[in-house]
């Protein structure tokens, strides 16, 4: 681990001030990803700004019928919050599919959005990696890439975003509230993370000196027809090969609204409005779901070891949509896939 200074932020503006004063500084809350990366010497912040004492721990209803979740709410508190369980069970399910009970107790909502890729080359400081050391090259493109992205990749990077929570948030149309040196702003979750293009060292569109203050969920929670399905190499405590968040609004068997997002396949949660639009007005059938899957996976490219992900994702999408349509969401504890 490198040497660093430690400061405790007293409020949000103090955090912004500390961040702005020291370009090498990083915010720390749960620490579950940052400390891990610091121990690997991948992250080497000059200063850690402890924000755990900021008043960002509330979950409150918004005037529009949605939910505003403070950035410091621990993942497990969010998953088990009665309003989330009742109105946004897709989000609860996705959170519970990730990490372990201990890590969910520690990790904050804001931190979850900031977690970095599990690409093995990113983690190994002896190998080239554009995300860790811009300009050194991508070792994964011609290397071990079984876990890597099939969508939205670039010649610079094929890493994936490892978050489960973000996939559900993308599907639900969540907003990210941000405070920074020039005031407050809001980004759609789907615009929060970015594709690697030629700047893979940037995971998100968060500007310098900015801090996530809250996540906002719109009123529509898809509490009846939803499912989160995570496919991985062991049955728990592993990162996704592919995960699917699906939510439907049904009138009879007809789809009036559809949401679909993928995890484990791209540098950000992968959502396609086109695929969702194609489902609207259609019957909830495997054929229509397959068509939506094809639209969502349009442009998917395989590297040497991850070609299976394309077919796996296609099947997982159809399956998850069927689970949603049948109102038989995937249990995260009972491992038989519904």
């Amino acid at each position: 681990m490198n040497n660093f200074d430690y400061s405790r932020a007293s409020d949000v503006s103090d955090a912004i001030r500390l961040l702005t004063a020291d370009p090498g500084a990083k915010l720390i809350a749960g620490g579950t990803n940052l400390i891990d990366l610091m121990k690997e010497n991948v992250e080497r912040p000059s200063r850690l700004i402890d924000i755990t004492r900021l008043p960002l721990r509330d979950i409150e209803e918004t005037a529009g019928g949605g939910l505003r979740i403070g950035a410091l709410v621990p993942n497990s508190d969010l998953a088990y919050h009665p309003l989330v369980e009742q109105r946004y069970p897709l989000l609860a399910s996705a959170i519970l599919a990730g990490a372990s009970a201990q890590l969910r107790n520690m990790a904050s909502v804001g931190g979850n959005l900031m977690q970095r890729t599990r690409c093995a080359y990113f983690y190994d400081t002896t190998t080239p990696c554009n995300k860790r050391s811009p300009g050194t090259g991508c070792s994964a493109i011609d290397g071990l890439n079984r876990n890597h992205a099939i969508l939205g990749t670039s010649q610079s990077c094929i890493a994936t975003n490892p978050s489960d929570m973000s996939v559900a948030l993308a599907a639900l149309g969540a907003l990210v509230h941000i405070a920074g040196p020039s005031g407050q702003r809001t980004l759609a979750l789907t615009d929060f993370h970015r594709l690697p293009d030629d700047k893979p060292h940037l995971d998100t569109n968060l500007g310098s000196g900015e801090i996530i203050t809250a996540i906002e969920l719109p009123a529509h929670g898809f509490a009846r027809n939803f499912s989160y399905l995570k496919i991985r190499d062991r049955l728990s405590y592993a990162f996704a090969l592919v995960s699917v968040a699906a939510a439907l609004e049904l009138e009879g068997n007809a789809i009036s609204e559809a949401r679909l997002a993928l995890g484990g396949v791209a540098h950000k949660p992968w959502r396609s409005l086109e695929a969702e639009a194609a489902l609207r007005g259609k019957a909830a059938t495997p054929d229509h779901f397959g068509h939506a899957a094809d639209l969502l996976l349009q442009g998917a490219t395989a590297r040497s070891h991850n070609g299976f992900k394309i077919e796996l994702a296609r099947r997982a999408i159809v399956r998850t949509l069927m689970q949603a349509a049948n109102a038989t969401p995937q249990s995260q504890a009972h491992k038989k896939i519904a």
Binding site: I28, G30, N105
Partner: peptide, 12 residues
């Protein structure tokens, strides 16, 4: 609450 103490900074 159960946590991983290896990823917890004592100072925090």
């Amino acid at each position: 609450r159960r946590v991983n103490s290896c990823l917890t900074l004592a100072v925090m």
